[in-house]
Nucleic acid binder design. Structure first.
Length: 611
RNA sequence: GGAUCUGUAGCUCAAUUGGAUAGAGCACUUGGCUUCGAACCAAGGGGUCGGGGGUUCGAGUCCCUCCAGAUCCGCCA
């Protein structure tokens, strides 16, 4: 419940105008609040029409809490003195001075430092996870976003290379939902590829029923290899495999049954992994689902003149784009239909885009894949934009969320068919084991069952966070040490901070859901102030991570917040006799707890009571 | 051959997308537990941001060029 803020009494001595002003809570997102105020000042100065932007951002703590850099860029364009211009703006920001210390620095930076009373006001105003949610939920209210992630091929196990899409995708889903969007998680599985020809061929001839009963996915993988090897060695096998594929596509009941069995088994195995990662898809619309929807794509693209015949195939060029132009040195058209009449992933993806726009009324579509598909999705998006424009369909925002490859020691991307790559199942199991050893070492007194539960959370979180803590666009060499590191910017460090806060509440016999902090006063010590200043920047971290679709910005923020808390924890004791000191420190502890837990849950991690 | 991405401390990574003195962790050195959990904290050394040139008040970030690696380039997705 957000009511009037209990800051009134510190304001009694101030003017009536300021008093009334102070009854308005400082908004959830302080940077946005500053932006609004500066824009108003710029408008008063007549700068808005000339394209003035405030450029408010989080500042280096040494300089302030937020900084506005807009005067610099504007002055350059308008050939004015930036420092003088910044001063004119500052002169109009008098109302902000109740909450902030304003300073002008360097060539024209405007710095804003929150006063302790303003910090207290913000902390009092946003006092529960629900308050944080309410504060953030306006940005994408009423929008529907489709997030297409994980999307493995069936009949194969997921290996470490599949982890990034799942982990990053889930974090993005949660961030979008937190900003108010309705999110539809769509697992666009590869269930209709040519691999099924070879697979069905082998299934009919080399199936081992015992192996199928023990570990069906393992057996399907073996069968695929058998089929692949045989087809490579013998052209007649390849021919038979193609025939099996055609029969499947023509609806042959035996082949359909095998196909369905393979997919059902695969999805059940995938689900075990998803359960561990806390992922639950809303829909699983794989490539087969779009099978009957591609003719419309061919028709509409041809009618609108976007697609053309070329060597028997149906292709789309984008002449305005050097890379996809027909005039390129080596043309790279978007292959909508192959020369032999078969559909490819391009046509499936086009049909998928249309379905998402029409059926889900998507405001935005996010597709999470590795960087190798960059060209494909660029062509897809270019084609979709022209196609939708020609047919007057409403165009959703299209985002390809690209991440780097997970590579082996040779620096080359891991591929399923190379064999010997680490299976996701094994990775998660190993993570749990290593975490268990550590838990047992650190907290041997906890009962075995609890140590197991804790180890599960720590192990899985560590693996998830290994992907979320770094900028998604870079490649990395897979290593156990990296995935299961427990020091530095890692999940255990963050989870540890959470358990230390909870421990304080336990020690004081207080319920963290109902912290007695109504009488808390403004932060005083260096560490208290530093922690409070960090807490107030949570909305900015959320916004940055969501707008850029880069969850690591939130991870970095949480790591820094946990660091501030650790410094505070070491310096300032919370459970002390002085009731005033105690209340104001408990407030900081509690707000740290809700921000950390909310943030970690947004990244898809689970948190712990103790560890 | 063309295109895209990557290159930051010995190692693994950040840097709010053009902002102020490039920051963390690991490793190394030093100090801190009879005091709310030391899976922690405090402090120290360590950098021609791959090389070179350019754009401007300001560049790790943008442009050009060279070097190194990865990836893609009409029918597997």
């Amino acid at each position: 419940m957000r009511g009037p803020r209990p800051r009134a009494k510190i304001l009694l001595a101030q003017s009536q105008a300021q008093f009334l002003n102070q009854w308005m809570p400082l908004p959830f997102n302080v940077a946005t609040h500053l932006d609004t105020a500066i824009r108003a000042a710029a408008k008063a100065l007549g700068l808005t029409d000339q394209g003035f932007e405030s450029e408010v951002r989080v500042a280096d703590p040494a300089n302030g809490d937020f900084q506005a850099n807009g005067a610099l860029a504007f002055a350059k364009r308008a050939k004015q003195n930036p420092r003088a211009l910044a001063q004119q703006i500052v002169d109009l920001l008098g109302a902000l001075q109740t909450d902030f210390d304003l300073t002008l620095a360097g060539p024209g930076f405007i710095n804003f430092r929150l006063k302790p009373a303003a910090l207290l006001g913000w902390l009092q105003a946003y006092g529960s996870a629900q308050d944080l949610q309410n504060g953030a939920a306006s940005a994408r209210q009423g929008q529907t976003w489709i997030v297409d992630y994980s999307s493995p091929n069936t009949a194969k196990q997921m290996h470490v290379g599949h982890l990034r899409s799942a982990v990053i995708g889930e974090a993005i889903c949660r961030l979008l939902a937190f900003s108010g969007a309705k999110v539809i998680r769509d697992n666009h599985i590869g269930d209709w590829g040519t691999q099924f020809g070879k697979l069905i061929w082998a299934h009919k001839r080399h199936l081992d029923p015992a192996a199928l009963a023990t570990d069906p996915l393992e057996e399907f993988e073996r069968l695929y290899k058998v089929g692949n090897t045989a087809a490579d060695a013998d052209p007649s096998v390849l021919e038979e495999a193609r025939h099996e594929l055609v029969r499947l596509q023509d609806g042959d009941s035996t082949n359909l049954e095998i196909w369905k069995e393979i997919n059902d088994v695969s999805l059940a195995a995938f689900q075990q992994i998803y359960d561990q990662l806390g992922i639950k898809f809303d829909v699983t619309l794989g490539e087969s689902f779009y099978n009957d929807k591609v003719p419309r794509v061919y028709r509409e693209l041809s009618e609108s003149g976007l697609a053309e015949e070329s060597g028997g195939a149906l292709v789309v060029f984008h002449d305005e784009h050097p890379r996809f132009s027909r005039n390129a040195e080596r043309p790279n058209p978007f292959m909508v239909r192959k020369g032999d009449g078969a559909s490819g992933y391009a046509s499936t993806d086009l049909a998928t885009a249309l379905y998402r726009a029409e059926n889900f009324h998507a405001h935005g579509i996010v597709i999470v894949t590795d960087f190798r598909q960059t060209d494909h999705f660029e062509q897809l998006f270019l084609t979709v934009k022209k196609w939708f424009a020609a047919k007057k369909y409403r165009l959703p925002e299209l985002h390809h969320v690209i991440f780097g490859a997970v590579t082996g020691d040779d620096g080359k991307a891991l591929r399923t068919r190379d064999g010997g790559t680490i299976k996701l199942k094994e990775l998660l199991g190993e993570a749990e084991e290593r975490a268990y050893a550590l838990v047992t070492e650190k907290t041997p007194d906890l009962p075995e069952a609890e140590r197991r539960t804790i180890a599960r959370t720590i192990g899985i979180s560590s693996v998830q966070y290994a992907d979320l803590s770094q900028n998604r666009s870079s490649n990395y060499v897979f290593s156990w040490e990296k995935m299961l590191s427990f020091e530095g910017n890692t999940a255990p460090y963050l989870l540890y901070a959470v358990t230390r806060v909870r421990s304080i509440f336990r020690k004081a016999s207080l319920n963290p859901a109902e912290p007695p902090v109504g009488s808390a006063t403004a932060p005083e010590s260096l560490q208290e102030i530093s922690l409070a200043r960090k807490l107030v920047k949570f909305p900015d971290a959320i916004q940055l991570a969501t707008n850029t679709l880069r969850p690591h910005f939130l991870g970095l923020y949480l790591y820094e917040l946990a660091g501030e808390f650790s410094g505070f924890y070491a310096a300032d004791k919370v459970i002390v006799d002085d009731a005033a000191v105690r209340a104001r420190r408990l407030l900081l502890c509690h707000r740290t707890l809700i921000v950390l837990e909310t943030g970690l849950h947004l990244l898809g991690l689970r948190t712990l009571e103790r560890m």
